[in-house]
Design a protein around this nucleic acid. Sequence first.
DNA 1: ACCTGAACACCGTTCAAGT
DNA 2: ACCTGAACACCGTTCAAGT
Lengths: 176, 176
Amino acid sequence: MSARKMVNRQSICDTAMQLIRLHGVESLSMRTLAAALGIKAPSLYDHVKNRDEVIALVQGAGLLDFGDGFAVAGTTTRDKILFYRQWALANPKLYPVVFQQRLQRELLPDGLEANVLGLVVDAAGGSHILARTMWAQLHGLVDLELQGRLPVDADMQSTWEQVIVGFEANQKANMT
Amino acid sequence: MSARKMVNRQSICDTAMQLIRLHGVESLSMRTLAAALGIKAPSLYDHVKNRDEVIALVQGAGLLDFGDGFAVAGTTTRDKILFYRQWALANPKLYPVVFQQRLQRELLPDGLEANVLGLVVDAAGGSHILARTMWAQLHGLVDLELQGRLPVDADMQSTWEQVIVGFEANQKANMT
DNA sequence: ACCTGAACACCGTTCAAGT
DNA sequence: ACCTGAACACCGTTCAAGT
């Protein structure tokens, strides 16, 4: 019967992430989080500094999960691009927390952000500038898609194909 | 002495927009908004349904302002792209409200969204798919820039130039 | 029609107090 | 060390009451 509670930073992060996945960040309160952990809100402050630190924990875990998947997602740029979209659509509530909120860098594991950025640069073929324009495009398209800012009849399949061929063309032009 | 108050939907929109420009959406409360208008919070509900409707008013006004500028911003695609960035950087707190929040379409002036989307399609040369990939890139890059998600030493000048030449190349490839 | 004070159910956070 | 109830200053929103 008795569920192991064992509240610590890890279980706080896991539970917060689960709640965000289900209902979005905006509905994650210190009271609901505490309740899901079987304690009261003030007790959370024995484990984390404040709500921002909870968000930072989730950002770190999300970035790690994304990075792991991205690193092994096929070998071609096409594979990486499609993985990016797939991860975002599979984690629609988590995506904005990990990729849109201002990063609280001092609270992130050392080197985690640089590591993920490095993966993107690799996927872009080594150019930092191309990496940025590619990342911007993936991020922007995913954001517009998640926020429902595109026409409902928009042909997203073709749009993503255009992103891929467009990027490959830029890459080729950049090598000359 | 006595300042003309004249509270109505227009003055509510203007004041809310001003407060958002200064301090961001997250600090716009019905109480602070009311105070800035010289009334109490409950009185706002005689003019608008709720806070979401205030946001929708600002979205509409912001979209209109952006559209007006974009329409007359030079003739080349390059001009349009640079205007997009410039508008975003000039309105850093407003930008996410207008271009990132879920649009409350039923509260927007009729045809406003379609009008702005049409301007983007025109700027992209008429192709809906190219318009979407271009818009995504501009939106994504602006968002990464505003959120400080890019390395501090990132060469943004060159990055935007790459966006422009990359888009022009795609446009050319698309015409064949 | 437009405004008010009081109230409701929420927030994040602090603090004294318990074990 | 970890947890609690009570409290603070905030939210959005409703409502009876005033003009």
